[in-house]
Write a protein that binds this DNA or RNA. Structure first.
Length: 429
RNA sequence: GGAUGGGUUCCCGAGUCGGCCAAAGGGAGCAGACUGUAAAUCUGCCGCGUUUUCGCUUCGAAGGUUCGAAUCCUUCCCCAUCCA
């Protein structure tokens, strides 16, 4: 059952995962515990290479992987290059775009850079993480062979018992055959990794439970057919909880889109801001999941509530940013935040935005590609007129006012769009 | 293949005996006030536009009727339910 707190884990790894709230569901907990206690275990989590970076929504997975690796286990990041070619239609209204080989390769390479911050890929170490792409084996599959070897292990009766499918059928929602088959492909991934790398554990988001368990069962059945009872080994699966914020939204989404981990997509400063702006009620949970602070320390930070929460959030933001972007960037972001929201007026910690133009009208400046303080000129105009835009700390209410370097300090024009968005703009000459 | 009900702005969802509809209401979002860079609450905004009681684009798609269409007609596409 989800969140079964009565279970006393013997292995440090599983105990930590449970304590910190990483486990939603799992196959035999005691067996996982035993396997983890016995020695290094190879495990995998699948990711979609549909974007060039993972985002905060994936971060629970990554942190769980990091935790396991910390206790000596070997992570595999499976990139779904092959499944992306099919296009997983789960919960999608439109058919997902098919990705070209080049795109998948580029995305995979880019994501690798992000994973590097969280996992140790050093080939020399005993628990080195590795990254694989299921295109390498899925694309070679032959339909008839696949049906004969893999398909025969699945019964439709069993498959429709899976919650995702069950719900769809109960609600009389359409369920495409393609989607139905997706589960087989994912189960096959697990089988392949089990054979190829001795991978015995699969993790994933709670929506992946059905697919994960399908892989576990496939391996059991294949083994049942191929090996004797003594050498048969069992594999396991777990899911992490689907995180929602206290006000009911999905973790990792903001009005500006997903909160990516790649600094090319979201600056460390904005990343820091994402965490510090979280809801009070989520702080303790987030500290457990996304930082590596001791539980006792987390309790101390969040015990008091009220204004003390600011300190807890600052720690959360700092730790989370340090993991994703490094301690230096975290420090810079923290400093920029203190300057922006505290008493200080030193904007130097903010990344300067260098424009080619030597001057711009305020409306145009504020909606500029590189700034995007507001999403349309119309809206920008309204906000400007209502006094939401400040230059050098003073509201400027004329949208047509021309802004140039002379409106700023030596270090650029200090532009504020609303309370929280600040930009240091350097004009070109 | 047949019958029925549908496709409205980010989402949900009003509106269809043609004009007063850029389109009710709710949610989300943005800005402001209050605060703790929180929550709650209140106020304003919430299709786009350097002519802003004006212009342009939008109500599945394309045509048509009309001075005028989200609203009427035709064809087509899509979705749901039931029947085969």
């Amino acid at each position: 059952m989800p969140g079964d707190s009565s279970f006393q884990a013997k292995s440090d790894a599983l105990r930590t995962l449970l304590e910190r709230g990483y486990i939603e569901q799992s196959s035999d907990l005691a067996a996982i515990d035993a396997a983890l206690a016995k020695g290094p275990l190879t495990f995998y989590v699948g990711f979609d290479p549909t974007a060039d970076s993972i985002h905060v929504g994936h971060l629970v997975q990554v942190m769980a992987m990091r935790t396991l690796q910390r206790f000596g286990h070997r992570p595999i990041c499976l990139m779904g290059g092959g499944t992306a070619r099919v296009g997983d239609p789960t919960g999608k209204t439109e058919t997902r775009k098919m990705l070209s080989e080049e795109q998948v390769a580029a995305n995979t390479a880019s994501m690798r850079g992000v994973f590097d911050h969280f996992l140790d890929f050093d080939a020399g170490s005993a628990h080195a993480a590795r990254m694989v792409d299921n295109a390498d084996w899925l694309l070679k599959l032959n339909y008839v062979e696949f049906l004969r070897e893999i398909g025969r292990h699945f019964t439709v009766n069993r498959m429709i018992a899976a919650k995702t499918y069950r719900d769809r059928l109960d609600n009389e929602q359409p369920l495409s055959f393609l989607e139905f088959n997706y589960q087989l492909l994912q189960a096959y991934d697990f089988l392949h990794l089990h054979r190829e790398y001795g991978c015995d554990l699969q993790g994933g988001g709670s929506d992946q439970w059905g697919n994960i368990i399908a892989g576990v069962e496939l391996i059991r059945r294949v083994h049942h057919a191929e090996t004797s009872a003594e050498e048969r080994d069992t594999v396991f699966g777990y899911t992490t909880p689907l995180l929602t914020t206290a006000d009911g939204k999905k973790m990792g989404k903001t009005e500006r889109g997903a909160v990516f981990l790649d600094p090319k997509r979201i600056s460390p400063y904005d990343y820091y801001q994402y965490w510090i702006n979280c809801d009070d009620r989520d702080v303790a949970k987030l500290l457990r999941l996304f930082t590596e602070l001791e539980l006792a320390e987390i309790d101390a930070l969040t015990a008091e509530g009220g204004k003390a929460m600011r300190e807890a959030k600052a720690r959360l933001a700092h730790e989370a940013t340090a993991l994703a972007h490094g301690a230096d960037e975290a420090e810079r972001a923290a400093k920029a935040a203190r300057q922006a929201f505290g008493a200080g007026d030193d904007w130097s910690a903010l990344e300067a935005i260098e424009l080619e133009e030597s001057e711009l009208k305020l409306v145009d400046l504020v909606v500029h590609e590189r700034i995007k303080g507001f999403k349309s000129k119309r809206e920008a105009r309204q906000r400007i007129e209502s006094g939401a835009v400040k230059i050098a700390g003073e509201p400027v209410t004329d949208p047509n006012q021309s802004i140039s370097a002379s409106d700023g300090e030596d270090d650029g024009v200090h532009l504020q769009c609303g309370k929280k968005n600040r930009f240091r703009v350097a004009f070109g000459g």
